[in-house]
Design a protein around this nucleic acid. Sequence first.
RNA 1: GCGGAGAUGGCCCAGCCUGGUAAGGCGAUAGACUGCUAAUCUAUUGUCCGUAAGGACACGGGGGUUCAAAUCCCCCUCUCCGCGCCA
Length: 420
Amino acid sequence: MLDANLIRDDPEKVRRAIIDRCYDVSILDGFLAADGEWRQAVDRTNRLKQERNRVSHQIPGLSGEEKTAKIEEMRQVSEEIKTLDGRISELDSSRREALLNMPNLPHYSVPVGADENGNIISKTCMKERDFDFEAKEHFEIGEDLDIIDFVRGAKVAGSGFYVLKGDGARLERALINFMLDLHHQQGYREVFPPIIVNDESVIGTGQLPKMADDMYHMEKDGLWLNPTAEVPVTNLHRDEILDASELPLLYTAYLPSFRREAGRHSDTRGIARVHQFNKVEMVKFVRPEGSFDELESLLLDAETVIKALELPYRVLLLCTGDMSFHASKCYDIELHAPGGDRWLETSSCSNFTDFQARRAMVKYRPEPHLKSEFVHTLNGSGVALPRTMVAILENYQNEDGTVTVPEVLRPYMQGQRTIG
RNA sequence: GCGGAGAUGGCCCAGCCUGGUAAGGCGAUAGACUGCUAAUCUAUUGUCCGUAAGGACACGGGGGUUCAAAUCCCCCUCUCCGCGCCA
């Protein structure tokens, strides 16, 4: 959510940002109209309430006709206030709705572009692997080794779900433990939050109202299945004023994530796009002034995971049109999957500046007794499991059909060197 | 799920029965005072509208009654205690 004062003071800056991000600018004009009317109405109701308060306090000292007259007068003022307050609440809703649907302002360093073609490859690491045999795709490998079972996943839950079996399940668990341990060493505190979240949380981080159709909703309880650990972890501190001395706060969490993937029909084969997947996530609460440096270090922390796994990857700096709407700046890490010669988005590291903090009311006091301010929040996957699994299976596959276990994972698999 | 008790400012806590500008304490910050510290005194310590002066709002959330609601009425959420159920 943007600062209403900033929008009033510099609407053209906001208009530029909305255009760069390919959103409809009418949302800005809608806000300005509702906001102007809202402020006038608030001013008028405040004056009326002042009058009512003043006279109401005089009434106990009055008697007879004068008292009756004042009471009648105030009854009418109260009626007027009630009508006006109703109008204010309508205006406030449209104001707020416009605010909730307005994207964050991109950082000046973000390239302007309409779609993924505007993204910039900011770094490429480790050469893609050359094969002297025909590389298989991960779903073939998984089925041949009987470690990924799509048929039974579909039986138990439906299309888009899968079962990890044997060394596949063990590899998944090894990855989770390896990543959590690494992030722990990097200074992140491990948490395991609820996997089900309420409306306030999902609004707080910005998935609602825009992404409602992408999440699983439990109507009976009014709750949502976690779409990304960013939601419960960031909302740990919703409606809190943090102690400045405890910033930056760094968290890491392993959490299953759920996406409905409504309306997406391509890319359904395999485990690269599924309804339920595990992810290890990093979340930072930081002071505003250093937040873009914190983004760079967050990216490095995520890259460390990939480097340790010795997988070929590249880092993209996303352009204005391709960033998710709550980010101010975002890097994607893509892993190379040689089976299908594809680049898979495996991590997304974003600085949301004060956008989420303002929605979720996460503040801190820069100095004792000074006015509290919004923190900046950041989030990075470190990293998404299925696509990492794809990259491992495809990059570490051997001609005989086996898969070598990456060296850093062996301690997590009782020293096992190969699968198959 | 049932019964009971609660939720008041950054924190603690009074006020509720019997409606009339949210009392007191703690902590924090600034100033005053004192060789230093402590103590003491004073001020500040939530949100919104407003350039400001000023004003409004805020007693878990939402409705209602009333000239006026922390206080009375209704609905909801959460916490604690007991009972029930349960991996």
